[in-house]
Design a protein around this nucleic acid. Structure first.
Lengths: 240, 240
DNA sequence: GCCCCTCTAGAACAACGTACTAGTACCGGT
DNA sequence: ACCGGTACTAGTACGTTGTTCTAGAGGGGC
């Protein structure tokens, strides 16, 4: 029995990579990115500081692991029964993706490094597989994938970064109003008082999805149809 | 003459806020965000470290000032003569915006903090004023503004963060191929080998602009027309 | 009995942001 | 001619950070 207990302790040593990552997420949630310190992390784990370095090479590893770990909280959405409802699948995926990141606001600031964790790749796989199922291939597939991803990331980073208190926002808006001659539109439209991020996100998502859907998914020649990148230029070509 | 020289020196002391910010941008360009150190900055300026703190309250101030300073490099684009060509104005603005950030890649990682510098506000003013000129008001104006801003930021952050060497990208793609059963789509579509960020950006921008243009700009009741956020939900409503 | 492997932890180092303090040069007032 | 204040520079020092180096404890196999 003691042997068995000892073996159990052997298979689950008091300090594990998983335990470190879990506590790192908790610490990040509680104190933000600046609160994550190897010493504080060790303190919360009841271990020596340098012990962490046996399980992990560097602090960046901890951050990367924590970043991927939060995407294991939620399972991928179940694809809709109707195979034509690919847009619903994408909306479900992106809404959950955003919700996860906003549950851990520090993640938004960290996602600028290349994201190669298994859970993030799984989400990317789901996104692109859904688009493939909808008929996108080649360059169109690539553009659609990134357009959706960009909207998600831009909206979430903006949302997570705009953490001003209500008073601060009102003060900033008053300052905009004082600079009325320089920023008349921002002043008139209460730019700083924006607070309905959720509907802003979903409305923008419909824009992107509608734009993607309108551009036909590569049936036939992939380089001729309207909406090609070549139609964008600084000169004329727009506004017809 | 000596008096005059002395007065000139008086009006332009050896160390200026502007000179500090300029050197900070150069240092950030050369060595990235981790290379920006008060000591190294002082060294490059030929001054004592703590002297900086007379001109600037904290290091964050330096970063914020540098971040806004890069948007003074380029003037705002001249609005197109044709008033209906508002989309061309927006494209010109966003292309230049992105180009500026990619010229200083550290800026992408920093833009998660609320951006209230005068040059950034001027760009935001241009963007929203153009949309107002196109007829957008109220919620639609807000959604359109942020959809465009989100696309810009998402694309630029992704681009600036994906700085892997060609060999690293190929190695990562090989790893994806080895995990074929888990990421079949990413494996089959060379997800990691994406490198034409420019056309991906412009194509995505046409998607967003088309989606915005398709949704009518608040002529009449602002809450009834199609494309309302309420039409998005996890359940049915999509995929018709 | 001995060794190696897994795991823990203290001590120490270089580098960081910043506060405190002292000092220099110049200008206006008396 | 002196004095005080203002603009500006700079050295020293403190606490904190990530990380390396080194030492050591406990257990299984020869």
């Amino acid at each position: 029995m003691w042997l068995r207990e000892s073996r159990a302790a052997r298979e689950e040593p008091p300090l594990t990579r998983a335990r470190i990552v879990g506590e790192a997420v908790a610490l990040l949630d509680a104190e933000g990115i600046d609160g994550l310190t190897m010493r504080r992390l060790a303190e919360r784990l009841g271990s020596g500081v340098t012990t962490l370095y046996w399980h992990v090479d560097t602090k960046i590893d901890v951050v990367d692991l924590a970043l991927d770990a939060i995407f294991a909280e939620t399972p991928l959405p179940a694809p809709a029964p109707d195979p034509d409802a690919w847009q619903a699948d994408i909306v479900a995926l992106l809404m959950d993706w955003r919700a996860t990141m906003l549950r851990h606001p520090w993640s938004a600031a960290l996602l600028q490094r290349p994201t190669l964790g298994p859970n993030l790749l799984a989400r990317m796989e789901f996104l692109q597989a859904t688009l493939v199922r909808a008929g996108f291939t080649g360059r169109r597939l690539n553009s659609a994938t990134w357009a959706l991803y960009n909207h998600l990331m831009g909206a979430t980073v903006a949302r997570a970064g705009f953490t001003l208190s209500a008073e601060d926002r009102e003060a900033a808006q008053r300052r905009l109003h004082d600079l009325n001659d320089r920023y008349p539109t921002l002043s008139a439209n209460d730019y700083m008082l924006q607070n309905d991020w959720d509907t802003t996100f979903t409305t923008g998502l419909t824009y992107v999805l509608n734009g993607i859907t309108a551009s036909p998914p590569t049936d036939g020649q992939p380089s001729e149809v309207g909406g090609e990148p070549a139609t964008i230029s600084r000169g004329p070509g727009w506004g017809g």
